[in-house]
Design a protein around this nucleic acid. Structure first.
Lengths: 119, 119
DNA sequence: TCTATAGTTCAATAATCGTTGAACTATGGA
DNA sequence: TCCATAGTTCAACGATTATTGAACTATAGA
């Protein structure tokens, strides 16, 4: 995944309503969910919802298909997987240890340092 | 990690300059980097840089300490690790398979479906 | 003490983003 | 064909965000 794609995905997910929408769609699984169901669940007006869906769609985080009168949105798990890969690669360097949770003894040392640092 | 913390981290990383800053800091490792070095590397004025550092700091993605006249910023790997955990848990559901890359045969089927769907 | 270096703070501005209301399109059923 | 349901489009508005210039604070060295 390229930096610009990651940036679009991060932007799409960095908004409360959209993160909620996306979470619902992930729970719903590959079959997706009707737009109206999401509107009800999150109490969002239909035009606002369309706006957010568009952003998620442009970030390749969801797909849509029509089914009768309903639009069915579904999460694109492949993109989330790519994003996780990007963040792990570009934000943890080659060294996976850097991102790994610290062991207890290491944690203690780290805490001491952190306490001294300005946050 | 709570949803609101994840949202703050995602917002902090969803901006080009900040993602670049964070990447540099990750490369630099636990010892961090002088603010001035980052300013030079990314060609950003000092006040703009301070603004972005503040957002990264509030999202708990970096720490600062003073060293003589320089401010040394460093990535907080623990937070990135928490964010990856959050995204995996809340965005991949209990079923890690959902986020896992598809096998070749599955990919083919999936492509057919995707082609029919409106993006 | 004086000066240079390294960043921060603050107010102003421009750009982007999210929400809303009103009008519109698409589909299904009577 | 007419009506109801399900969403989309578009323009307008307010809120948030990023950038900039100018003034300021903190530290080091002469």
């Amino acid at each position: 995944m390229e930096t610009l794609d990651a940036l679009e995905a991060l932007s799409a997910l960095s908004q409360e309503s959209r993160l909620q929408i996306y979470s619902l769609l992930v729970e719903a699984g590959p079959n997706g969910m009707q737009a109206g169901q999401i509107a009800t669940a999150l109490d969002l007006p239909p035009n606002t919802l369309t706006f957010h869906f568009d952003r998620l769609r442009h970030a390749a985080l969801v797909t849509v298909r029509r089914e009768g009168r309903s639009m069915i949105y579904a999460a694109r798990f492949d993109t989330m997987n790519d994003l996780l890969g990007y963040l792990s690669k570009n934000c943890c360097g080659g060294d996976a240890q850097k991102c790994a949770p610290k062991s207890k003894s290491q944690k203690k040392t780290a805490r001491g340092k952190e306490a001294a640092a300005i946050r």
